[in-house]
Design a protein around this nucleic acid. Structure first.
Lengths: 162, 162
DNA sequence: TATATGAGGGAATTAAATTTCTTAGGGGAA
DNA sequence: TTCCCCTAAGAAATTTAATTCCCTCATATA
């Protein structure tokens, strides 16, 4: 991957509806080679998928809650089942295994506090959890699906390094 | 918005490359009305944008760090500048103002611990922050951009409620 | 009962993606 | 050095999908 691929990725991360011809113009290529680069990056899995992003307010899921879970000393079996159960909830949009104090961290989206409470009850009904603590986000100041491309390993042999 | 719109959204949240004709077939419409519904939801801002999602590993940003910031008693000016500075960093992919103990929460993506340290130094060089604590994610068990559509307010008059 | 309104659908049209065929440049082997 | 191969680019043709146009039907309303 080179500088041109990075440019293409930068644009597609922002807006994947761009026509290949327009994209090509912006990166300084003609449509065919540009199209082929995109194909290649899709085959290689660099581009995972293309999705529509919805407005959380319009869809009635404006509240984000971060759920910290502490679970000292549990069986492997429990951990497996725990993950499986949690992943199933569509309200859980992110789920991490952490180092440090907290063992797991969830990002949960719901319409309001009441809905969070309902979700919480459904969750603990499905699996026993020791220590849970919930932190509510008052405001989402930034949310982007664009990953920084500055760390990408590029081939500087190619396409006239500056 | 009705049940059909919800179906359309469900599919487009998963894969926005679906041809309108295929989408239409799946939801039980012909292409024209299906196309018009999509247009309408784009105009209304229900569909915010369409983007390409990249593979964090291939792009060399596999490490997620959650950064908790406590900042008791600061001027409005400081808060404004703080937000502006933080938002600029491409490594900060999510940024919330929180209730409770922690005042702000960031999700930062970087290649490795060393890069996080470099990021951290750049951040505190740009703005003075009292109390920062970093928690590393060992594993991303779930990450999705699909919002739950179960809370959506739908018009049950329309299209034969069951 | 006439009539506007909103939604659906078929077919034509336009635009974009994809394929095919050619060309140019660079690097290594004879 | 010259020739050949490999890789990437580009123009044009073709295929496929998006978009528009025009018509029909059902519902609700005066």
């Amino acid at each position: 991957m080179d500088r041109l691929d990075r440019k293409i990725l930068r644009l597609l991360q922002e807006d994947s509806t761009l026509a290949v011809a327009d994209l090509a113009k912006k990166v300084g290529l003609s449509t065919t080679p540009c199209w082929r680069r995109i194909q290649k990056m899709e085959e290689d899995g660099v581009i995972r998928k293309r999705v529509a992003l919805l407005d959380p307010v319009k869809i009635n899921t404006k509240v984000t809650v971060f759920v910290s879970i502490r679970t000292n000393a549990h069986s492997t079996e429990w951990l497996k089942r725990f993950s499986e159960v949690i992943v199933e909830f569509p309200e859980v949009v992110e789920f991490y295994r952490m180092s440090g104090e907290v063992d797991y961290l969830l990002r949960v989206v719901v319409p309001d506090i009441a809905a969070y409470d309902a979700f919480y009850k459904r969750m603990i009904a499905r699996i026993e959890i020791r220590d849970v603590s919930s932190a509510f986000a008052m405001e989402q100041i930034k949310y982007t699906t664009e990953l920084p491309l500055d760390y990408m390993v590029v081939d500087n042999q190619k396409s006239g390094e500056e």
